[in-house]
Design a protein around this nucleic acid. Sequence first.
RNA 1: UGGGGAUUAGUGUAACGGUAGCACGACUGACUCUGGAUCAGUUAGCCCAGGUUCGAAUCCUGGAUCCCCAGCCA
Length: 634
Amino acid sequence: MDEHNRTGRFGGRVCTRFPPEPNGYLHIGHAKSINLNYGLAADYGGHFNLRMDDTNPEKEEQEYVSSIIDDVRWLGARWPGMRADDPKAGVLWGSNYFDHMYAWAVELIKKGKAYVCDLAADEMSRTRGTLTTPGQDSPFRSRSIAENLDLFERMRKGEFPDGTKTLRAKIDMAHANLNLRDPVMYRIMHATHHNTGDKWCIYPMYDWAHGFEDALEGITHSICTLEFENHRPLYDWFIDAVNAGRTDDGSGPWGKKIHHPQQIEFARLNLTYTVMSKRRLLELVKSGRVRGWDDPRMPTVSGMRRRGYTSEAIREFCRRIGVSKVESTVDVALLEHCVREHLNKVAPRVMGVLRPLKLVIDNYPDGQAEELDAINNPEDESAGTRKVPFSKVLYIEHDDFRETPPPKYWRLYPGNEVRLRYAYFVKCTGCTKDAFGHVVEVHCTYDPATRGGDAPDGRKVKSTMHWVSAAHALPVEVRLYDHLFTRPDPDDVSDDALRAAGEGEAPAEPSAAGRPLTPLPLREGLGEGRSAGQPDATSADATAQDWKSNLNPNSLETIHPAYVEPSVANAAPETRYQFERHGYFCVDPDSDAAPGNVAADPGVGRSTPGARRLVFNRTVTLKDTWAKIEKKGT
RNA sequence: UGGGGAUUAGUGUAACGGUAGCACGACUGACUCUGGAUCAGUUAGCCCAGGUUCGAAUCCUGGAUCCCCAGCCA
């Protein structure tokens, strides 16, 4: 762009666009493109268009249009004519340019650069030649201009059935670039278009349409992915063909030249432990292996949003990965780092116990309760403080107690003293077990002098633990997510993965987060477990040996109930918190409306606020040094 | 064996004839009322071979490897 500005190629103007085909939901790869295009326009003081590339009525749906618009807005891109009250305001449509395209097609016919071809699809394929051998001219290549004009007009009128005729560019059937071997410009498709209805029964192909969409909008830099590099000569050829005979001032038979944008390619984004193609994401959705396009495990924009990722984090991620023409796979750890980095600054802290274990403070008065001050966000003083209820019986994390502590374990074990965050020092006196030897209750005594969490005598404890008061805590559902696939590259179906599949087990590699999920009685579901490691009777036969065999059977674990401090009771969906020592969590839309919102809906009488169903998604874990130590020890 | 691209630490990305840098990851350590955060440090790289040059990741020649293209998809 600097070069173009220097040479004045576009008069110092910069205009970019994001041109999705509405046939699927946007994913993080699209986010990269959106940020690139929008960012460039913003940096160079230009403008950015959101345009639906809707040239194929058979594949496109309204649902996708709405989700795309929603996602692009959420990501922070702004386009001319955008309005808050009307999502579609200012959105552009490739299908709105069909009239222009048709006229230009007629012009090409008149210039002898296009012809109507009667070859069937398979015949055309056969005569296209191969990578190393030239194709053969279509027998219809030399039709007269008059005949072509007549036939094309009749194609438009609907006189011919689908697939019987095409309009082709007359270029070179022997060209080394197969895209230039008389590519199809229009095909016959008697289908109702979501935007143009039944006006057309011929629809333009991508190559024919795309350059003109860019040209009409005055796009300067048409940025696309690497696989379109082979198409750039055709992109240029079509615009040059229209411009042939045209002049800058519009004199002459063909009129004024049209704008010629510059196509530029960059590498699409790949991420470890996930798949990114729309085809594969659709397959996951359709087969029910995820709950939908916005399943929090999906790399879709809506999935990440539902999971609790922020658009700021995604933008920062896009900034850090850079842009190049090298095909690469970015470590998902970088994305997660960006999410933690942002959430650490903005997410209020809260205490929540995922695997509850009862802790009884034997010397705390029965029936007594008090409220303790807790800091909402140590990274943000303006976030203030809140009160957290405390009483004799608490829940602590199951993993925060060991009857016999392993080396370097600083938490609760008989005889050890720890701090309950913002509350008191407590010293473990023992535990009680059930008939099977499972610890069911831990007992301790507290030191009333340490109220608030500091010992007046200056003594230190090695550990600070989170807790909730059993009588006050909110029972909630928590969904823990892990990577969708067990391998960095889902396409890696090497021997051991297959062997594991054959044995009906997940591949041997530990979960990507580096911490195998601990089975507990509370564990409710195994997510999509049926899909990955347990093929039917035929087991690891050839058909099962694809990327889906690497699906992580433990990508979703549901915990119910987990207990969270009462301050989150009324949180709206998408509200994000840090559950201290666990990670970042986000209220899922599956939660019932908060009491405050229920009033708006009289049909839902809800007398007890505490009965609201609350569902949290784990966005990302905190870094867990102890998990590493423990893992090394084993 | 046709055409088009690409190749810098484990990963991603800078340096555009002049000391190969940054981020993530991994590993140490310090600090801490989150085993969080933060801070400090360590680790590790120019695809190969020639050539030009005082000097090459960068320019030239040859080679290797990887990706894309034979839809009436985009």
